[in-house]
Computed example of a mutant assay.
Amino acid sequence: MKTVLITGANKGLGFETARRLLEAGHTVYIGARHAERGRIAADALGARLVLLDVTDDSSVDAAAATIAAKGGLDVLINNAGLEERTAENGVPGAGDETAASMERIFETNVFGVVRMLHAFLPLLQRSREPVIVNVSSGLGSLSDLSEPDQPTYFYPGVAYPASKTTLNAITIQYAKAFPDMRINAVDPGYTNTDLNGRTGTQSVEEGASIIVRMAQIGSDGPTGAFLSAQGAVRW
Rank of each mutant, 00 (worst) to 15 (best):
M1A: 13
K2L: 01
K2F: 07
K2Y: 12
K2V: 06
V4A: 07
L13A: 03
A18Y: 00
A18D: 08
L22I: 13
E23A: 15
Y29M: 08
Y29P: 11
A32L: 10
A35N: 07
I40K: 14
G46N: 11
G46D: 12
L49S: 12
L49D: 08
S58I: 01
D61C: 05
A65P: 00
A69N: 14
D74T: 05
A80P: 13
L82I: 03
E83T: 05
E103A: 15
T108H: 09
V114F: 08
A119E: 00
L121P: 00
S127P: 04
S127I: 07
P130D: 07
V135W: 00
S136E: 09
L139S: 09
G140I: 11
L142M: 14
D144K: 12
D149G: 07
D149P: 04
T152R: 10
Y153I: 11
A162G: 07
S163R: 02
T171H: 03
M181G: 01
N184I: 04
D187R: 06
Y190S: 05
L195S: 01
N196C: 08
G207D: 12
A208C: 12
S209L: 10
I217K: 00
D220I: 07
A225P: 00
L227C: 01
S228Y: 08
A229V: 13
A232P: 12
V233Q: 02
V233T: 04
